[in-house]
C-alpha cells in the first residue's frame, strides 16, 4: 500500500484512544506549564519576561525551566501551554527562519515569525497547545504579538499569557506608559511576572527577562531569584559511606577498546 508522503502528526490512533477513553482508561497527562509570561514595548525595544515553574498536575516538575525561547538573533518568544508544544513549535520556526536568512541574507522580521507560528497553530486547530508572547526588533522597529493555540494573533504594546496572565495584566494596566526607559520597562515586567509567581499557583520560582533592542539582546536568566529554602535541617540525615552494600564490582579497561588517532585539521570552506 502506498502511503502519502506528508509531514506533521499521525492521527491514526485517535479513534482507538477515544474508544479507550470511553471504556474508562486514563491517559497519561503531559507537562503543562501553568505559567506567567509577559512582554512590553519600551522606548528602544521590547522586554520579555517569564517565570520558571513547570507543573505536572499539582506537582512541580521543574523548578527552574526556561520559557523564553530563541527564534532569531533579534526575536525571542515566551511560551505557555504544553511544554513539548511550545518548545517544538518555537524550534521549528527558528529553524525555518534561519534557512530563510541564508536564502535572503537579510535580518528576520517579527511578522514573519508570527505568520509562521499562526499558520502552524491554525493548521492543527488548537491541538498544538502553545500560547505565545512573541517579541523582537527588526528594521521597522519593535514588535510584540500574542499568539493563541487556535492560531489567532494580536499586536499589542503590552501583553501577557498563561495561567498568571490576569495577575500580570493587572500590573501592566496599572503601570504601563508609552516610551518607558529600559530600566522602567525591566522593572515593570519583573513586577508583572512576580505578581504571577506569588499569586498564581501555576507559576513560581524565579523571573527570567530578555531585553531586545536594535543594538542587541540581553538575556537575563534568573534576573530575580525570589526565594531560597526557609529552613535548614538541624539534624540532617547523613548516610555513612558503606550504607549501600556493594553487590558486585567489575572494572573495564576502555583503553583496550578505544584507539586514538591524531589527525590534521581539515580545511573549511568559507565565503
Amino acid at each position: 500500500m502506498e502511503t502519502a508522503q506528508q509531514g506533521g502528526f499521525s492521527f491514526d490512533l485517535c479513534k482507538r484512544n477515544e474508544f479507550f477513553a470511553a471504556k474508562g482508561v486514563q491517559h497519561p497527562g503531559f507537562t503543562k506549564t501553568g505559567t506567567t509570561i509577559a512582554g512590553l514595548i519600551f522606548k528602544d525595544g521590547v522586554v520579555l519576561g517569564a517565570d520558571t515553574r513547570s507543573t505536572a498536575g499539582s506537582t512541580v516538575a521543574d523548578k527552574n525551566c526556561e520559557k523564553i525561547h530563541f527564534i532569531a538573533p533579534n526575536i525571542y518568544c515566551c511560551g505557555a501551554g504544553t511544554a513539548a508544544d511550545t518548545e517544538n513549535v518555537t524550534g521549528m520556526v527558528a529553524s525555518q527562519l534561519e534557512l530563510h536568512r541564508y536564502a535572503t541574507g537579510t535580518q528576520s522580521r517579527v511578522v514573519t515569525a508570527m505568520t509562521l507560528l499562526k499558520g502552524h497553530l491554525f493548521k492543527y486547530q488548537g491541538h498544538v497547545s502553545a500560547a505565545l508572547v512573541l517579541g523582537g526588533v527588526d528594521f521597522r522597529g519593535p514588535h510584540l504579538f500574542t499568539v493563541y493555540p487556535h492560531g489567532s494573533t494580536d499586536s499589542l504594546p503590552f501583553a501577557t499569557m498563561g495561567s498568571g496572565s490576569l495577575n500580570a495584566m493587572a500590573v501592566f494596566e496599572a503601570g504601563f506608559k508609552d516610551d518607558m526607559s529600559r530600566e522602567e520597562a525591566m522593572a515593570l515586567v519583573a513586577r508583572a511576572i512576580r505578581s504571577g509567581v506569588m499569586n498564581d499557583l501555576g507559576s513560581g520560582s524565579n523571573v527570567d527577562l530578555c531585553i531586545i533592542t536594535k543594538d542587541g539582546v540581553e538575556y537575563l536568566r534568573n534576573h530575580e531569584y525570589l526565594q531560597t529554602k526557609t529552613y535548614e535541617r538541624q539534624f540532617p540525615q547523613k548516610f555513612a559511606s558503606g550504607s549501600v552494600p556493594v553487590v558486585r564490582e567489575r572494572v573495564y579497561d576502555i583503553r583496550r577498546a578505544v584507539q586514538v588517532v591524531e589527525g590534521e585539521p581539515m580545511e573549511m570552506e568559507v565565503s
Binding site: T55, S58, T59, L201, G202, P236
Partner: peptide, 14 residues
C-alpha cells in the same frame, strides 16, 4: 517535620 514540610513546599503547589 519541618524538613518534610519545606521539601513538600518545594514540589507541591498547594
Amino acid at each position: 517535620v519541618k524538613g518534610a514540610f519545606v521539601s513538600a513546599g518545594e514540589r507541591d503547589i498547594y
